[in-house]
């Protein structure tokens, strides 16, 4: 079984927001915990750790996923984007801009997951209807805003095609 990993701690190599990282990670550590604790990317939040709230949503090889439901070791060789990779330097991504303009965040805790979900959603559905936006973000819980301004922000962004790629 030479090609298998077998250890309690494993070396991994991955790309996050365009930057390469190498690390040795305990196999039981979730990807979300790894990003937060070891890479210091604390924008990815933990709201439930059982895959319901969506606060930990990141892009895993381009797909929006719950990072609390993956192990860090599973990200070996992967290309990830977190909320920290959405803006280019000081320039906010149009989605971030729209969230600010529409007061689409109050406490801000769900915001990173919501942004990453919205980003992936718009990649898939560049000109969505309001109903599609509602369905698109229905896997992300916000307790503050009542969703309306978030939906507004996403619709506003969708009217500015093409959506710029994050972290590029």
């Amino acid at each position: 079984m030479t090609s298998s990993y077998r250890a309690v701690t494993l070396p991994i190599k991955l790309t996050v927001n365009g930057k390469e990282y190498q690390s040795s990670v305990e196999v039981r550590k979730t990807l979300a915990d790894f990003l937060r604790d070891e890479l210091g990317l604390t924008g990815t939040h933990l709201g439930c750790e059982h895959g319901v709230c969506g606060a930990c949503t990141i892009l895993f090889n381009g797909d929006a996923v719950r990072s609390c439901l993956m192990l860090a070791v599973q990200a070996d060789g992967a290309n990830l984007t977190t909320v920290e990779g959405l803006a280019q330097e000081e320039e906010l991504h149009p989605l971030q801009q729209a969230f600010q303009e529409n007061h689409a965040l109050q406490c801000g805790f769900c915001t990173p997951g919501m942004l990453m979900t919205a980003y992936a959603f718009l990649q898939d559905t560049p000109s969505p209807t309001e109903e599609q936006v509602k369905e698109g973000i229905s896997g992300n819980i916000c307790r503050c805003t009542g969703y309306a301004p978030i939906i507004q922000a996403i619709l506003q962004t969708s009217k500015e095609p093409p959506v710029r790629k994050a972290g590029e």
Partner: peptide, 10 residues
């Protein structure tokens, strides 16, 4: 947080 386990990725 998960309990300990051994991990294999065949």
């Amino acid at each position: 947080k998960p309990a300990k386990f051994e991990y294999f990725a065949p």
